[in-house]
Design a protein around this nucleic acid. Structure first.
Length: 600
RNA sequence: GCGCCUGUAGCUCAGCUGGAUAGAGCAACGGACUUCUAAUCCGUGGGUCGCAGGUUCGAAUCCUGCCAGGCGCGCCA
């Protein structure tokens, strides 16, 4: 309000003087209170263009501002200071106007006008459905969902999406692991493959299948067990012959699973076995997905679309898009493989789409997937990936540029990882060994609200050190309670307020005279620009920081300014502050996916 | 070797599309509950913003070079 008016006066002036390329006239909040409530450094920037000294310009600007009929009631004084700052001190009328206006806005305070275009697609989490979600996934989920809320609230038309990596060798291994656990529950000696999934959750999946189908697959798996032990014996002998000991073999680092081009042959290839594997893979995947969906839902994260990779393969979309790229000349054959010319769009080297063995790469599937997103009418795509995938960004951008016929459609946000500390030590995570801290564990330790707040309160391109001991033992000191407590306190005031006390701002009276009220109002006033900036910069952690600052301002206000039982004009004005603050705090918490309790 | 991210108080981090004397929380110490919720508030101490140059009226912020840490550089997914 003040800012817009100042800008308008400044621009009129610039036009009158005939200056070209004038700097943006921006208002900022000075660090030092002695410099007023707001300040603009524009005269220093203007000095070169105007060829006058900054302080001379500042004085001229000051005179014009004071002459402006709309502006002068809002400021108590306009001063020139330092090298050429123009400092503003607000009048109580200005504070009153801010609260009066925000009171009128109701629940939508600070929200943006909804814009139908561009239709934006936001993809995140997108993990293989072969293990539980760990804390790292939780961070991406919390971040992505907060970003969705932030974008939607600021007016962007956004839909979220989870890409299910339910295709390929990892899923085969998962299927075998589930089958083995299922067989074991019937006393069949079928081992989980060495490159399979050892975690106990696989037993849970197997138990559900046993519940559903009883011993339907036991006979088939018995014969698999026989064949497998034979093949293990052969492998053992081969190792012995080459001189390597079996002991060394089992102690090899478990994270190393180099892909051998020979397909795994420890399971027979007869129809019954293939059917069994297909069943356990598919059903296991479904059950894992179901569990994930439930867990994410409990975590407050829902997706508009769950998109299956295997569906792309089934529907022949990979072949189709590769054909299209060959036809357009963007892809070419070399050796026995098919390559995409990504170097033409800024990548380091061209990338393989179809390997010389005829199998498509993961990249080819991803291209088919992104083509599909565009076909569904999305005009702008955001993907949130882990830091370990950042090397993949240039080729994917190149691919989308080719598909969309223009650059700047795909934005990739790289999120850094989560380090888990326990008893001062780093806890390493491995999905296959099942040695990870799951999202569920974290939620059970500190609750959804604290977990969500904690996971988004830091910038996403900062690795997050999560101290589990602290999270468990000191959840009382988590900043989320500080913010929620402010909300609960306001709710309490509203409950205790007498019926005849209404939230109302009387602009004519001398109100909002204390610094506590004024600080709080200035913070409230900045809410909508904070939202816009946080959305533009994909930075929900700013909302968390703002919420803490706002809660702090409120707690100070609460301590010094009574609402109930004071002079009626003051009481209703302060009640108005409370109401507006409550709405803004509640909105901040909602943007983060955290609850706003009425009492604590 | 190349690319991305990071380096700010004892600890965890904001601030990074340039503004005045660099902030918050935790930790340490000292105060405040007859009054709307003390999960709160008030006060004290704590810094060569990794280092060195450069651009600018002005640099934690932009540029260059170094140092340190993390991640990545497949016809894997």
């Amino acid at each position: 309000m003040l800012a817009e008016r100042v800008r308008a006066v400044f621009e009129d002036w610039a036009k009158e003087e005939g200056w070209s390329e004038t700097p943006m006239c921006q208002l900022e909040r000075p660090a030092d209170q002695a410099h007023g409530d707001y300040a603009t450094p524009v005269c220093m920037q203007l000095a070169k263009v105007a060829r006058r000294s900054p302080r001379t310009l500042a004085e001229q600007l000051r005179q014009r501002l004071l002459r402006d009929a709309e502006l002068s009631p809002l400021v108590e004084k306009v001063e020139i200071a330092g090298p050429g700052f123009v400092n503003f001190t607000l009048s109580s009328k200005a504070y009153a106007q801010v609260i009066a206006r925000m009171l009128d806005e109701g629940d939508q305070i600070g929200g943006g006008q909804t814009r139908p275009h561009p239709r934006l697609n936001l993809e995140f989490v997108s993990v293989n459905p072969n293990g539980p979600l760990h804390v790292g996934h939780g961070r991406y989920a919390a971040y992505g969902d907060a970003l969705r809320r932030l974008l939607a609230f600021s007016g962007v038309n956004v839909a979220t999406e989870f890409y299910i990596n339910d295709f390929g060798r990892q899923m085969d291994r998962f299927g075998k692991s589930v089958a083995a656990r299922y067989a074991q529950s019937f006393g069949v000696d079928l081992a989980v493959p060495a490159d399979g999934y050892q975690g106990d959750y696989v037993k849970d999946v197997a138990a559900v299948i046993r519940e559903e189908l009883s011993d339907r697959w036991v006979q088939v798996l018995k014969s698999v067990a026989g064949a497998a032990s034979e093949s293990a014996r052969v492998a053992f002998e081969r190792v012995s012959e080459t001189g390597a000991s079996a002991a060394t073999e089992t102690m090899a680092p478990e994270d190393e699973f180099e892909e051998s081009e020979t397909e795994e042959s420890d399971w027979p290839a007869d129809t019954a076995t293939v059917d069994a594997l297909a069943f356990f893979r598919t059903r296991g995947c479904e059950l894992m997905l179901e569990a994930m969906r439930t867990e994410l839902c409990e975590f407050g994260v829902e997706f508009d679309c769950w998109f299956s990779e295997s569906a792309l393969h089934r529907e022949g979309r990979l072949e189709r898009v590769v054909e299209r790229l060959l036809t357009s000349g963007e892809a070419y054959r070399e050796g026995d493989a098919i390559w995409l010319r990504t170097t033409a769009r800024g990548d380091d080297k061209d990338r393989v789409l179809i390997r010389s063995n005829g199998h498509p790469t993961y990249f080819a599937a991803d291209i088919a997937y992104h083509e599909n997103k565009l076909e569904r009418g999305f005009e702008y795509l955001i993907n949130i990936w882990g830091a370990d995938h950042h090397g993949y960004v240039p080729r994917m951008k190149a691919a989308v540029e080719i598909l969309a016929g223009g650059a700047g459609i795909l934005e990739v946000i790289i999120g850094q990882l989560v380090n888990l500390m326990e008893q001062g030590e780093l806890r390493q995570m491995s999905t296959r060994r099942g040695e990870m801290v799951t999202l569920r564990e974290l939620i059970e330790a500190i609750g959804v609200d604290a977990a969500r707040f904690f996971l988004v309160m830091r910038s996403q391109d900062q690795t997050l050190d999560l101290d589990l001991d602290l999270a468990r033992q000191q959840s009382q000191e988590n900043p989320v309670y500080y913010v929620q407590y402010a909300h609960a306190r306001i709710a309490s005031i509203l409950r205790n307020a007498p019926d005849d006390l209404a939230a109302k701002v009387d602009e004519s009276s001398k109100i909002f005279a204390t610094p506590y009220e004024r600080e709080l109002i200035k913070r409230l006033e900045s809410f909508s620009s904070m939202v816009q900036e946080a959305a533009e910069r994909r930075a929900p952690h700013r909302v968390a920081a703002y919420a803490q600052d706002l809660a702090g301002d409120f707690h100070v206000f609460y301590k010094h300014c009574r609402v109930i039982g004071v002079e009626p004009g003051t009481a209703s004005s302060r009640l108005a502050i409370c109401l507006v603050t409550k709405r803004v705090v509640s909105r901040c918490l909602d943007l983060l996916g955290v609850g706003a309790p009425e009492s604590m």
